[in-house]
Amino acid sequence: MNSSAQNAPAPAVTPASSYKAVRAKKRSLSRLKEPALAYLFLAPSILLFGLFLLYPLMRSLYLSLFLTDPRGHIAAYVGFDNFRQLLTSSSFWSSLAVTGKFALITVPGGLLLGLIMSALAHSRLKGMWIFQFIFSLPLALSVSTSAVIWMMLFHPTLGMFNYFLDLAGFPAVQWLTDPKWALLSISVMTIWMNSGFNFIVLLSGLQGIPEDMYDSAKVDGAGPVRTFVRIILPLLSPVVFFLTVVSLIGAFQAFGQMHILTKGGPAGSTEVLVYSIYKEAFVNYQFGTGSAMAIVLFVLIMILTLIQFTLVEKKVHYQ
């Protein structure tokens, strides 16, 4: 309605040319205002990123070169001593090793479980929606609720796991207090906690693969397992790759399950990197060395992200 009025020829009183000029002027005015408007729209985000992300990152770098008093004030400049100290400390290397082991169990384990769950639940059998719903349920879990539930399941005398072991005729296992088992127990709990996310991402990846891919494989007489490994898996590789990197980064950020279940013990066997940072900064009040550890974490995750960006274009099969 509005447009018909504007598109109508200009009244004879005003020459067409001047009308055009007015419009052009108006337009250039609004165009001048455009960048200002853009920055106005970006301003809240930029301000918040600067204040709570970029400035703290710089501040972390800065703090990592100093020793601090327990209130967080700078006490002495020590240069790279914090880093030198870290690299010669066996507990730091041990926490790196624990983090690596944790990632090596949870990332492939979670992927495998997710692949099997999504492949089966994607079949065209009856009642699949029930399984799809059940497999999505862990999305609701938080690290603290999951950890508390599994604390009960892991209980040495009254827990369900030892009860089942007992039924099957095996001796009881000290799930969380035996250094041989603690990290594995936490990893299994973590795989369970993350299974919803892995399932959803892989299932939607599978749903994106055209039906005729399956049909043509069937015509060739390939069995379901071979079809999946030979044809579907390569097509799914971008999604699998995305999930690998995201879970790896997630594994490097793990904290809550260790804090609730084991406090990093027994004998440091579950003390991951973020737990070490937490302990150094918020238990021992060493904000300087804590920041140095945080910088190491940053570099490690940066490397993982860069690998994602460079490899994703080359190695991965896109449709």
Partner: peptide, 13 residues
């Protein structure tokens, strides 16, 4: 930038 990297300065801030 993982959030854990910035938690110490954020806490102090």
């Amino acid at each position: 930038i993982p959030w854990e990297v910035t938690m110490i300065p954020n806490f102090l801030l």
